[in-house]
């Protein structure tokens, strides 16, 4: 097994860990987004609550969720290790540097964007995940069955304008993070081809960097507007 450790501790191996966890987290986003679309249903949260019940009780989903928590931790931890290593690779900085001439801002600031996202995830999980698992969430009854009414928590959280704003900002950060991260993940794995790389770039740019964050950002805005009877 020495070779596994040796591989994963090389600069390329570390990037592979970043890539695999990152791409896994990207795929999770699709599921998470699809599920949360229930919020737009206008049924006072029934579909949403049924969905959250399913997510917290299905054994396969529960298993995957542990993989997800691990991925977040490993992705963040490895990013920290890599950043330290990368910074140490240039102990004396340039007095005058003009990186904007040769590279995109997002590609150079994945660490900052990632830190924002990590803080976001902590806040996000404290607000919803923690409440769902350990908090006092009121119950709702549909067709004689009891459900935790997470929708109430959602409404409460998103009724505050600054909380909505925080979410929107974090989703913009996620857009930038993914605009570079998704394509970069494939590059790290060596998946680059004249025919397929344009497709990867397209998905990375339009789907993961624009559509997904936009839909996520739309959720708190929608709830905010509804709670305040603006729509």
């Amino acid at each position: 097994m020495a070779w596994v450790i040796q591989t994963l501790s090389s600069s390329l191996g570390r990037k592979v860990i970043m890539s695999l966890t990152g791409l896994f987290l990207s795929s999770f986003l699709i599921v998470h987004m699809a599920g949360n679309l229930q919020l737009f249903k206008g049924d006072n949260g029934r579909a949403f609550n049924e969905y959250t019940y399913f997510m917290t009780h299905n054994p396969l989903i529960i298993t995957i969720s542990y993989l997800l928590y691990t991925s977040i931790l490993v992705h963040a931890l490895m990013a920290w290790v890599l950043t330290r290593h990368n910074q140490a690779s240039r102990p004396v900085k340039y007095a005058y540097s003009k990186p904007e001439a040769n590279s995109a801002w997002s590609s150079r600031n994945m660490g900052i964007l990632g830190t924002i996202l990590l803080l976001f995830i902590i806040i996000h999980m404290r607000t919803f995940w923690f409440e769902m698992h350990f908090g006092a969430v009121p119950m709702a009854e549909y067709d004689g069955k009891q459900y935790k009414d997470l929708y109430v928590v959602v409404k409460e959280a998103f009724s505050q304008w600054w909380y909505v704003l925080l979410y929107v900002i974090c989703m913009i950060a996620m857009g930038y993070h993914l605009s570079h991260g998704f394509q970069s993940g494939f590059q790290t794995l060596g998946i680059r081809h004249k025919k397929y790389t344009p497709l990867i770039e397209f998905i990375g740019t339009y789907f993961f960097a624009i559509i997904v964050p936009a839909i996520f950002a739309a959720m708190p805005i929608y709830v905010f507007l509804q709670v305040h009877h603006i729509i």
């Binding site: 570390r14 140490a88 690779s89 240039r90 995109a104 590609s107 570079h180 590059q187 790290t188």
Partner: peptide, 12 residues
Amino acid sequence: FGACSFTGACSV
């Protein structure tokens, strides 16, 4: 040397 962040600066 550091790791690759795929910024593309090298190639430019």
